[in-house]
Design a protein around this nucleic acid. Structure first.
Lengths: 318, 318
DNA sequence: TCGGTTATGCTCAGGATAAGTATAAGCCAA
DNA sequence: TTGGCTTATACTTATCCTGAGCATAACCGA
């Protein structure tokens, strides 16, 4: 039976799709997370998966290098989206986007490329929670979201909406969870507070600050940020973004920049040291205000030594 | 410049690809994890992403229901692969597989379907570490891997290989890490110990036990198992696999079945209870040997109450 | 009633975490 | 040259989490 179904589908025309490869390429410079953009900071590096590409990753590398002149280092796959938006357009062939997260250090973008490093908080201002409480913008965001909740049909739907808002945005005494980047973006999209949503046909209500991107690119970026924020907690990926030598404060600032929140200095150091992620180079940081800090380097050995951190299961020894 | 590149690629012919949707559909019955298979237990439910499908997920649902008669419940995306194997065949259009993980309860497979529930450890015997030390098979596996390490060209390559083996398989006093399912499969593939690798052109050395699958399907299954083993630790997804009411021991057995290892009973209960994942139904399990156990049900409230568990960052309160 | 079996409650030591306090070591300007 | 500013680094304390095991309860069948 399965065979029959399979055959039927093969004969049905028009299974052809086009697959786009999209890169979220991240660097951190001076405590600010940056992403590589093209098209006047309105798109991520991307291009179709082609015949000549030996694999998805090589295709991606080819496109990024061609468009930005920047080689790709550490790469991992993010997610595969089918295009939403243009929903009525049922005639066009399907197009899917296979997205990747890449980590590097910032480099000068070569001449002749339309590429820029753009700060990622330009696209997601609400994701930067480092500066305590940015009173005014947060207030308006919250009130827009509350208005959206209230606009639901029934009282129970209104409660449901507000609970979602409160959880994803850490309102009503809930904790802010920095990993919910994508959920926040999706919710704002659903609430019509994002230009992309209006473009895709939502009601044009008020729109909140934050630069937009073509197609699904801002959603893909949100996915990348979420993944990276989750990952720095259990794999030593920050080091892909650091220079060869750095002080512990620089490392802390990078982590804070990515996570969008501040961490406790002394405890951060203890965490790093007890995990033996770094070793002293012997050198001391120059030209700094305050007491000079020791320079450290990443201990590459840990990649081999430890596979992953951890278990939450109460394993039994016997 | 990017525009120029983009245009050049558009004019280049043959960007057409076909995208297959593949499902790893899991259930747990009597403490054994099962997966839905078709084609005489040699393939996962799958079919091409078609024109008529409104989204990737609806396409997947359509295929799984058509091939197995089983509706799809909880679903999440796993990974997107481009086909490897058939490397020399550069003429054929690219084909990519977008894979999903689905969780349900086992059901009778309807008449007229070629579908079966198959135990997942049939495909990965080495992943079941519940029964203490299965002495003989583990011994031969280890010796095969050691032989592969020794077959490297230089002494340093040999050491590298053995270190990889020891880490992924928990040898040399290292801990077994149940999440490294994919890494173990990839390593065995690389070592030519897997029929699929031989089929794809590796040297035909000895092959180890474990049923094979068509194409990349066993690799996709490994990806699914790994994802599920990781996820049960931080999201309450086991409950998708449990009946409405269950005893804590049944819950524990399910977790053990998925993780492939035994857990400490008392501590497991403490973990479940302190997280308030379940509540008593008031009823008591019948027809059991030993003291009868209380029945519990999953508290659906937790999904709304708590967003995610956790932080490893030493966050600062101020 | 005793031994087998599972359920459930409780303890205890060690380690990890959150949140500080205290001190050191530079610079700079009065 | 000294006091004040800044950052680095060491140490403390209370609390919580985890791994491991002991003890007891409740059922069954011989």
């Amino acid at each position: 039976m399965a065979g029959v179904l399979r055959k039927a589908s093969k004969t049905g025309a028009a299974n052809a799709t086009t697959a786009d490869l999209v890169a979220v390429l991240v660097a951190v410079t001076d405590g600010e997370p940056k992403i590589m953009t093209i098209a006047n900071a309105g798109a991520l590096p991307s291009g179709p998966f082609e015949f000549a590409h030996r694999s998805l990753q090589t295709g991606l590398r080819a496109w990024v290098e061609a468009q930005t002149g920047h080689p790709l280092g550490y790469v991992e796959q993010l997610y595969t989206f089918a295009d939403r938006g243009r929903a009525g357009d049922a005639k066009s062939p399907h197009s899917i986007s296979i997205s990747y997260l890449g980590l590097t250090r910032e480099d000068q973008v070569g001449q002749g490329f339309e590429a820029h490093w753009s700060g990622w908080y330009e696209y997601f201002p609400w994701e930067d929670q480092r500066s305590g409480l940015p009173a005014a913008p947060a207030k308006t965001l919250a009130s827009r979201l509350r208005a959206w909740s209230k606009s639901a049909a029934t009282a129970s739907l209104q409660r449901e909406r507000w609970q979602r808002v409160a959880i994803t945005f850490g309102l009503d005494d809930r904790e802010w969870n920095e990993e919910l980047v994508l959920q926040r973006y999706e919710l704002l999209y659903e609430a019509g507070l994002i230009p992309e949503a209006v473009r895709d046909g939502a009601d044009a209500t008020a729109v909140i600050p934050g630069r937009q991107m073509t197609g699904d690119h801002r959603r893909i970026l949100a996915t990348g940020i979420a993944r990276l924020r989750a990952k720095i907690k259990y794999r030593p990926v920050v080091f892909e973004l650091m220079p060869a030598e750095f002080t512990l404060l620089q490392l802390q600032r990078s982590v804070e920049a990515l996570a969008g929140r501040l961490v406790h200095k002394q405890n951060f150091r203890r965490l790093i040291e007890q995990q033996q992620l770094v070793e002293e180079t012997g050198a001391i940081a120059a030209d700094t205000v305050g007491r000079p800090a020791k320079l450290f380097r990443f201990r590459h050995g840990v990649l081999a030594e430890r596979a992953v951190v951890g278990t939450k299961l109460p394993l039994s020894r016997t």
